[in-house]
Amino acid sequence: MDGKLVRKADPSQIKWTHCHAMLLFDEKDAREHTIEIEMAEGHEDKQFTILGFGYVN
């Protein structure tokens, strides 16, 4: 987020490798951010799907 690593997602942590909903970050005030999502090093050849993004104001 905004050029800084915020979270590494690992669905195997919850023993589920399919749809894995997660909260990326939680802030008191809504503001614009730049979000980059990429596969971890060594896994760049794998595929992933983003089902949706949302925010609550």
Rank of each mutant, 00 (worst) to 15 (best):
S12A: 13
Y55N: 13
C19K: 15
T34E: 07
N57R: 12
I14G: 06
D10G: 06
W16I: 07
Q47R: 14
H20W: 15
S12Y: 05
E44A: 07
T34D: 04
T17K: 04
K28V: 13
E38I: 08
E27F: 06
Q13R: 15
E27T: 04
T17Q: 05
D10F: 05
S12F: 08
D45R: 08
R31W: 05
I37E: 07
A21E: 14
E38K: 15
F53A: 13
L51F: 05
L23N: 09
N57E: 07
I50T: 00
A9C: 05
H33F: 03
K4H: 10
L5H: 11
R7V: 11
M39L: 01
G3A: 01
G42F: 00
H18N: 15
L51R: 07
I37C: 02
K8M: 13
L24C: 02
D26C: 08
Q47W: 10
E36A: 03
P11V: 04
L5Q: 10
H18A: 14
S12V: 10
Q13S: 08
R31K: 14
E41T: 04
R7F: 04
K15T: 12
A30G: 06
F48G: 00
H18L: 13
A40I: 00
D45M: 04
A21H: 10
Q13F: 09
G52H: 02
G52M: 01
P11I: 00
E41M: 07
K8V: 10
N57F: 06
M22Y: 14
D29E: 15
C19R: 14
H18V: 01
E38W: 06
Q47L: 08
E32F: 09
K46T: 07
E38M: 15
G52C: 01
